[in-house]
């Protein structure tokens, strides 16, 4: 059974509720279970709001600020991942203002990211790359001579995956996967502000930390920051098969 390499990501987990809510997204009537995020409601009706920190295996976090939307009668630009649908809500996911904001955020991301897409192990399977495309980022006016993490040391201690802090976008998906999916709490963010970076334990290498190597963090990573060594060696897969674990 051949499947798409990457399953569709609805951004936030499915909510189960007896009550349904109908709202308007980009002029379309959409009906979803109460408690669903605007992002997921949009995705279920085929509207993909840009996102980086959201993934449907983890609770919404709201940090990347790409998924901002406009809601009629509400001030500001709420994040569609952390905002739940409400009856009669009128949501717009694509406006010139939103485009400008998303491009502004993307410009910041890329101002602290290596420009090695072509030789990067995640090439072709990188959400940051996708979002740069989606937001239409064409230049980074900040230049690349400012503060950055490009020379951060790679952690290759784990036999199965590498951690390259230079590619980290601090989306916390790995940290949250370790907490929510695995329940081990081995990862955290150390430092604050611009210094923030994923850290196993207290700035330990992965192998010295509490990490149990379940791979949930690697699975959750939207970039090449946490990457399987086999993918680094062999490149991205060309097809996939669903089978059952033999352990």
């Amino acid at each position: 059974m051949l499947e798409q390499l990457n399953e569709k990501d609805f951004g936030t987990p499915r909510r189960i509720a007896e009550q349904e809510v109908t709202l308007e997204i980009d002029g379309m009537q959409v009906t979803v279970a109460a408690g669903t995020s605007i992002m997921r409601a949009a995705a279920e009706s085929g509207v993909n709001v840009p996102k980086l920190c959201a993934t449907d295996s983890l609770e919404p976090f709201g940090s990347c600020r790409l998924c901002l939307v406009e809601i009629e009668g509400r001030k500001g630009y709420p994040a569609s991942c952390t905002t739940q649908v409400e009856r009669g809500m009128k949501v717009r996911t694509q406006t010139p203002k939103l485009q400008a904001l998303r491009k502004g955020v993307m410009e910041l991301y890329i101002s602290d990211h290596p420009l090695d897409c072509l030789t990067c192990a995640a090439n072709g399977n990188c959400e940051l790359q996708d979002m740069a495309g989606v937001t239409g980022l064409r230049e980074v006016r900040y230049g690349y001579e400012g503060e950055n993490h490009i020379h951060s040391q790679k952690d290759e201690s784990n036999p199965y995956f590498t951690y390259d802090p230079s590619k980290c976008i601090v989306c916390n998906r790995c940290v949250r996967a370790c907490e929510e999916t695995q329940g081990t709490y081995a990862l955290t963010i150390s430092g604050r502000g611009f210094e923030s970076r994923v850290s196993p334990g207290q700035d330990q290498p992965f192998m010295d930390s509490e990490c149990v190597s379940c791979g949930a963090c690697v699975q959750a990573c939207p970039t090449a920051t946490l990457q399987e060594k086999t993918v680094i060696e062999l490149g991205q897969a060309e097809h996939s098969v669903v089978t059952t674990c033999a352990y």
């Binding site: 295996s57 036999p159 199965y160 995956f161 999916t181 695995q182 149990v212 190597s213 379940c214 791979g215 949930a216 699975q219 399987e228 674990c245 033999a246 352990y247």
Partner: peptide, 12 residues
């Protein structure tokens, strides 16, 4: 498994 694995299935 609902999208989760352990070190054995995932890597070994």
């Amino acid at each position: 498994n609902e999208g989760h694995s352990c070190v054995k299935g995932r890597f070994a």
